[in-house]
């Protein structure tokens, strides 16, 4: 498996470049990049499930909504995902259905590395590459 994501410099915030073979994997790897910032890689027992359904006007918006939903769910309901079962249907490409498995992770008790405020639309890019997809997102931290 190749590189899933890498971070790049932005003066006030943090940029992440995400690689994937499919669009679903792009969404999954972007979530992994996000939580590598927030909590780092945690070995957790996935004993809880959470369903997320989102719709947007285009794929970029769907990606930003997805990341912001995960940030919001983490800081509000203390849900840290471990695995992501994501479905984006070809005939309905701007709708996402995901079944997340994870566990409760209380950010008010446990270590949080970076308080990511949100994913932004600034310089947001999603490109098709010979190997699949590449995206760039800037997080407000």
């Amino acid at each position: 498996m190749g590189k899933e994501f890498e971070f790049f410099e932005h003066t006030a915030d943090i940029g992440v470049r995400i690689y994937a073979q499919s669009i679903e994997e792009l969404f999954e790897n972007s979530a992994r990049a996000l939580f590598s910032l927030i909590t780092g890689n945690r070995d957790i027992l996935p004993n809880l499930e959470k369903e997320i359904i989102l719709e947007a006007q285009n794929i970029e918006e769907l990606l930003v909504n997805w990341l912001n939903e995960l940030i919001s769910v983490f800081f509000t309901y203390k849900f840290l995902p471990k695995s992501y079962n994501i479905r984006i249907k070809e005939k309905d490409p701007y709708k996402l259905e995901a079944l997340l498995k994870g566990s409760e992770y209380d950010p008010y008790i446990n270590e949080v590395k970076t308080e990511v405020k949100a994913a932004t639309y600034h310089n947001l890019k999603i490109e098709k590459t010979p190997g699949g997809y590449k995206a760039e997102v800037i997080f407000d931290v």
Partner: peptide, 17 residues
């Protein structure tokens, strides 16, 4: 704090449309 971040996120979603 998180209250403001959530308000902003909610309304960027609205205003994109």
């Amino acid at each position: 704090r998180g209250f403001g971040y959530q308000v902003c996120d909610d309304y960027v979603r609205v205003m994109i449309k």
